[in-house]
Amino acid sequence: MPSPFFRKIQTLKLIPQHPSKTSALQLLSELKTQGFTVEIRQVQRDLNTLSQLFEIENDGNKDIPGWYWKKEAEKLELPQMELPVALSFQLSEHYLSKLYPHAVMQHLSPYFKLSQKLLSSMDSPLSTWSNKVKLISRNQPLIAPIISESVLNSAYIALLSDTLIHATYKAVLQEKKEYELAPKAMVVVDQVIYLVAENLASNNLQHFALHRFSQIKNTDKPIHQDKSFSLDDYMSEGNFEYLYTNNPTIQLKLLVTEKAAYHLDELKLSDDQTIVPFDDEFLVTATVKNTDQLRWWILSYGDYVEVLEPESLRDEFAETADILYHIYHHNN
Rank of each mutant, 00 (worst) to 15 (best):
I147L: 07
I147Y: 05
S148R: 04
S148I: 05
S150W: 05
S150P: 03
S150G: 01
S150K: 14
S150F: 08
V151A: 11
L152F: 15
L152Y: 08
L152W: 03
N153V: 12
N153C: 11
S154D: 14
S154F: 08
S154W: 03
A155E: 03
A155C: 15
A155S: 15
Y156L: 11
Y156I: 05
Y156M: 11
I157Y: 11
I157G: 02
A158L: 07
L159V: 13
L160A: 15
L160W: 08
L160N: 15
L160T: 14
L160Q: 13
L160Y: 09
S161L: 10
S161H: 09
D162Q: 11
D162L: 06
D162V: 05
T163D: 07
T163L: 05
L164R: 02
I165N: 02
I165D: 00
I165F: 03
I165L: 06
H166R: 08
H166F: 09
H166M: 14
A167W: 00
A167K: 04
A167Q: 04
A167C: 13
T168H: 01
T168G: 00
T168E: 02
Y169D: 02
Y169F: 14
Y169L: 03
A171E: 09
A171L: 03
V172H: 03
V172L: 14
V172I: 12
L173M: 04
L173F: 03
L173V: 05
L173I: 00
Q174D: 12
Q174V: 06
E175N: 12
K176A: 09
K177T: 14
K177P: 05
E178Y: 01
E178P: 06
Y179M: 02
Y179Q: 03
Y179S: 00
A182P: 06
A182C: 10
A182Y: 00
P183C: 12
P183Y: 06
K184A: 09
A185V: 14
A185K: 06
A185G: 08
A185R: 03
A185I: 11
M186K: 00
M186P: 03
M186V: 15
M186D: 01
V187W: 00
V187C: 10
V188E: 10
V189F: 09
V189D: 09
D190L: 12
D190R: 07
D190T: 08
Q191R: 06
Q191C: 08
Q191K: 07
V192D: 05
V192K: 04
V192L: 09
V192P: 03
I193W: 02
I193G: 02
I193V: 15
I193R: 01
Y194A: 05
Y194E: 03
Y194T: 04
